[in-house]
């Protein structure tokens, strides 16, 4: 089993709801707090999920893209073997990559090892923290069904995010990845991220070229 999140870039508007709901849940959750520095001055804080905004192409063929980026819960998670204490580990039962704060020495080697820059360092507690796939929600049986999914998936106002087991070919995430050309980031680095993204699929104009050319030539040139 490999639990994961698939984000549809055709729907993500970059609203950062998932970025905030992540902090909101996790700061008081089992792996919190998710701290901030200098809240009144030049604030700089920890976020386990960051929405990257990217522009590409030259005007007027400009494309603007939003990319929510949290732990990819990699199949071959490079952060795990480098960790000297075993604090970083991948759960065998569900593929979630977690950190045991009690055995983390705060060496930050795992931050170097992670290709995606999703691990963040808590100076006060001396440990590295990151997205847990909301494991404390997933496994809390006292929660109502709707909350037994990652906070970022639950909050997403465009339903761009889908949660499920990628190893189960019948799951929604597996179906989306296979039918919509789902891709992982930086594949050349070999981490085999389980988190996937679905590419844009622009709808073409509803008028065919010939009709348009004809109308233009007849009446508007």
């Amino acid at each position: 089993m490999q639990l994961t999140i698939v984000t549809d870039l055709n729907k993500c508007v970059g609203c950062k709801s998932c970025q905030v709901s992540c902090k909101e849940h996790n700061t008081s959750g089992a792996y919190g707090p998710v701290p901030d520095a200098h809240p009144r001055a030049d604030v700089d804080g920890m976020w386990w999920n960051r929405i990257v905004t990217m522009e590409s192409g030259a005007y007027p063929n400009t494309s603007v893209m939003y990319l929510p980026k949290a732990c990819m819960h990699c199949y071959d998670a490079p952060c795990v073997p480098v960790c000297p204490t075993g604090a970083s580990y991948k759960r065998e039962d569900n593929g979630v990559v977690l950190i045991d704060y009690d055995s983390c020495i705060g060496c930050q080697l795992c931050m170097w090892a992670c290709p995606y820059g999703v691990r963040e360092f808590d100076e006060e507690e001396g440990v590295v923290k990151k997205c847990t796939l909301c494991i404390d929600r997933l496994e809390d049986e006292s929660l109502p069904e709707v909350e037994r999914q990652p906070a970022c998936v639950q909050s997403c106002p465009t339903h761009a995010r889908t949660f499920g087991d990628l190893d189960d070919p019948t799951s929604e995430v597996a179906r989306l990845v296979s039918t919509r050309q789902g891709f992982g980031l930086l594949p050349e680095l070999g981490a085999r991220p389980s988190v996937h993204y679905l590419p844009r699929r622009p709808e073409p104009p509803r008028v065919d070229k010939e009709t348009l050319e004809k109308v233009m030539a007849e009446r508007y040139e």
Partner: peptide, 29 residues
């Protein structure tokens, strides 16, 4: 949780947001 806000989330039945919430809404804490 006690006298502190633990979590703010959308009400699924609500016609306006149908269970979702935005960055501002969550940061209401």
């Amino acid at each position: 949780e006690g006298d502190k806000v633990r979590f703010i989330s959308g009400i699924p039945e609500n016609p306006v947001n149908k269970g979702v919430w935005c960055a501002k809404g969550g940061a209401g804490i």
